[in-house]
C-alpha cells in the first residue's frame, strides 16, 4: 500500500526494493550461506543499495521465525571472529520458487504497461 506518490527516483527504488527484499535475500542464500554484511555487499554488487544496511536484520529475523531460513555460527571466509551465517530451509526453498514465479508474472505485466508506446490517439476531453 502506498501513501502518496514517491517524490524522487531514490524513494521509488527504495519502496520497490522493500517489496522484494525478502525474495532477494532468499535468492542470495540459495546461492550459498551468507552472513549479514555479505548480503549488503551482494546487493550493492547488483546495483541495489539499501537506505540503511541494518534493515536486513529485522527481515532476516522474520524469515528465521517463519522457518524459511536457519542460522549457524562459523568462522568467516576472510578470517576473524565467527559470524552468524544463514542458510535456506526446505520451506524457504519452496517459498523462493513460488516467489520467483510471482515476481516473473508480476514484473512482466508491469513491464508491458510501462513500456512507452506513445499516445494511442484517443479523443481529448
Amino acid at each position: 500500500m502506498t501513501k502518496g506518490l514517491p517524490a524522487t527516483g531514490d524513494q521509488r527504488r527504495s519502496q520497490l526494493l522493500r517489496g522484494v527484499l525478502d525474495l532477494c535475500l532468499l535468492s542470495l542464500i540459495a546461492e550459498r550461506p551468507r552472513y549479514g554484511f555479505e548480503f549488503v555487499e551482494a546487493l550493492a554488487d547488483n546495483g541495489l543499495d539499501l537506505v540503511s544496511e541494518g534493515s536486513i536484520y529485522p527481515l532476516l529475523a522474520r524469515l528465521e521465525r517463519e522457518r524459511l531460513i536457519s542460522s549457524y555460527r562459523a568462522p568467516s571466509a576472510s578470517g576473524g571472529a565467527p559470524r552468524k551465517y544463514y542458510r535456506l530451509t526446505e520451506a524457504g526453498r519452496a517459498e523462493l520458487t513460488s516467489g520467483r514465479a510471482v515476481w516473473h508474472a508480476f514484473s512482466g505485466r508491469v513491464g508491458r504497461i510501462l513500456t512507452d508506446t506513445g499516445p494511442t490517439g484517443g479523443s481529448a476531453p
Binding site: S55, P58, R65
Partner: peptide, 17 residues
C-alpha cells in the same frame, strides 16, 4: 548501518525477533 534513528532500528529488530 542503522540509519538516522538508532532507537527505531533497535525497535524494528526487536519486533521481528
Amino acid at each position: 548501518v542503522v540509519g538516522d534513528d538508532v532507537k527505531e532500528f533497535a525497535a524494528s529488530w526487536a519486533r521481528a525477533r
